[in-house]
Design a protein around this nucleic acid. Structure first.
Lengths: 262, 262
DNA sequence: TATAAAGGTGAATCCGCAC
DNA sequence: AGTGCGGATTCACCTTTAT
């Protein structure tokens, strides 16, 4: 398997080509199946640019469940016994995903809450502001107890206090957000690097292999490189791959290893 | 249906006696009952000896799923079209519960994160400190849009800013925690009143009927009374009912309605 | 150049009634 | 079920323009 490259293809097909027990960490940001219908307007009558990408559309729960069962089953197969997987989602999909992961035998280590510092408000006043997404961190199963977790490092990273399962991180905006030639966001759901940094830093060692089956514009690859880990990406859309390669080429090491050594 | 009383009996059996469309709000804190050694039962009520193999694992999920499907189906039936339901859980069970609720047709309005200000640390350093529980707030279905939500009131309650789906609340300790005659906590999972207060305040009007099918030591009843709502409790254990009745008798109004009127 | 004001925007299941 | 229209509804942060 070639490292530090992006595979252009269908996630499930490509995952099937991987060897058993070959990956140290999987970070997956699958489609959420948001089921948006009408256009949403802000109080000032401007439109909200919602997620209306084709890749987020599924006809039913059962179709979504089948899709997730297939890619998650392959993920479990190719994960090393010492490896672990992170899957991010919102309330639209995380209960489907979590249920499937349990059924497949994954063992939940934490449900980490990404507490957004600057979420979009609920303009109509019909609900509470939806201020979180959820990350499920799982080992291969209950009996796989030797997963990598850099406890001391994360404690140090967190000002010498044990890090909790609530992470306060802002949305990916400004300079960090990859723009297309039209100046608009290139990907509708790009994640902040700080989020992925905590994932990789906590659950891998230097040189480990990180796989992202929904690579998008390459946040996982960029952060892996900056943290001296190796990555493999799988992505269906060619435009995203082009942007991701460019982005990763220009990524540099975040900081010296000594700063974060255990 | 007699109001402001506790029904002594089995949750599913008792729920079946309720009329359709008769309840304004349901707050449910079901047993987590997951993956705990030596307490698993097969459908025929025989004990499962070990839980190490996949067969037993599947058996336990399936048992729990059946139980939750049964009581949640009844909850949906007896909820008014303008009503809503809140279910609290941890990562051990909330993905089973959420998946079942979606399958039954419930419509998720928010996944509220109870961010504990004083969680128990992970002493072994094997995971992040588990600092949250999740509350699923759902209407009867996608097409039921007239659920009660006191938006302005909650905004006022939150210092004139829209309340978000993250609630920072401490564990139920000290004076508030109900003690048995031995001075030990009477119930192992008593919830803080502030949590239930936000639930009832946001999703009911004065005089509305609040049902708690897992009443325990009566937090829901105490808070409902303090907020001038009516309650019905269902509880299997007689000791809890005794404690709950005593507690509710000595509960008084929190504050004047005018303070929180919309 | 500095500060202030104005404008843009984010994984969003976001109205209710009359016809 | 679909359409049309009156009316109520927002927070943090970043960028651009104006003073």
């Amino acid at each position: 398997m070639t490292l530090n490259t992006i595979i252009h293809g269908d996630c499930i097909n490509e995952l099937k080509k991987f060897h058993d027990n070959s990956i140290d960490l999987i970070f997956a940001d699958p489609p959420y199946n948001m089921q948006l219908e009408n256009t949403l307007y802000r109080p000032d009558n401007t439109k909200v640019a919602g997620v209306d990408d084709d890749w987020d559309k599924f006809d039913s729960f059962s179709e979504y469940d089948n899709f997730c069962t297939a890619w998650l089953r392959e993920c479990r197969r190719i994960l090393k016994d010492t490896g672990s997987i992170w899957v991010i989602g919102s309330y639209h999909n995380i209960f489907r995903v979590g249920n499937i992961m349990l059924d497949l035998g994954f063992w939940i280590l934490n449900d980490v809450t990404w507490h957004k510092t600057n979420p979009m408000p609920n303009f109509m006043g019909t609900r509470f502001t939806n201020a979180t997404e959820t990350l499920l961190w799982c080992s291969k199963g209950k009996e796989y107890k030797k997963y990598t977790f850099n406890h001391k490092l994360m404690k140090k990273y967190n000002g010498n206090k044990q890090m909790t399962s609530v992470w306060r991180i802002g949305l990916c905006v400004g300079e960090e957000r990859i723009k297309g030639e039209d100046g608009k966001k290139a990907h509708s759901t790009q994640k902040p690097e700080e989020l992925v940094k905590r994932v990789i830093l906590s659950a891998t060692k230097q040189g480990d292999i990180v796989l992202d089956p929904f690579f998008g514009t390459g946040t996982t690859g960029a952060v892996a490189k900056k943290l001296k880990r190796q990555f493999i990406g799988i992505e269906k859309e060619e435009e995203y791959i082009t942007l991701a390669n460019k982005r990763i080429d220009s990524s540099n090491i975040y900081f010296e290893e000594a700063d974060w050594a255990e």
